[in-house]
């Protein structure tokens, strides 16, 4: 038992979101979208399908970026838990301190397919993205960032444990 200082009530952001959802007024919240023609559907043809069916880091990077040469760099910061609360929802984020970042990818090396997600980052968009991914088991998670054509990365081992009761 190592109780930590209590966290009273909820984070303000949760309450903002809740209030907005409840009121149904906040920008863009809860609009059923199918009938909404505000933005055209993205082109599925741009999907790098091959990169998503590989079983190794090298093959994935090769399919995604055309090279598997990657350098671990302290300029890529990555946030992921030591132990995942639940493998189905693991918050992972990266933040690159590098010029001319054009793309990024998050890999989970021991997942059935290594590639979890990738991003094309245009000029003006910050090379820092947070998302939630699934991990099938304990694995090394790698954030790869393409900067000036070169790949740099950060990685972290994330433990996925069984539930208590089996």
């Amino acid at each position: 038992m190592t109780e930590i200082e209590g966290l009273i009530l909820s984070a303000p952001s949760r309450r903002t979101v809740l209030a907005a959802v409840a009121a149904g007024t906040a920008a863009g919240l809860m609009r059923p979208a199918l009938s909404f023609a505000a933005a055209a559907a993205p082109r599925a043809s741009s999907y790098p399908a091959k990169a998503f069916i590989q079983h190794s880091q090298d093959a994935t990077l090769q399919a995604m970026f055309g090279t598997s040469s990657v350098t671990a760099s302290a300029d890529v910061k990555m946030d992921a838990p030591d132990i995942a609360e639940n493998g189905a929802v693991v918050p992972v984020s990266f933040d690159a301190n590098a010029p001319k970042v054009t793309a990024a990818a998050i890999l989970a090396l021991d997942n059935p397919f290594v590639m979890a997600c990738a991003y094309k980052i245009p000029e003006g968009t910050s090379p820092a993205i947070a998302s939630r991914i699934k991990l099938g088991k304990t694995t090394k998670v790698v954030s790869v960032v393409q900067s000036g054509g070169k790949l740099m990365s950060a990685s972290k081992q994330v433990k996925v444990t069984l539930g208590g009761c089996g």
Binding site: T2, I4, L7, E85, A130
Partner: peptide
């Protein structure tokens, strides 16, 4: 979340935009 900092940190990230929205 009063008993595990690691779990609490993940939870805070999750309720930033909670899945029950």
């Amino acid at each position: 979340y009063n008993f595990s900092k690691s779990e609490r940190d993940q939870w805070k990230q999750i309720i930033e935009f909670p899945p029950y929205a």
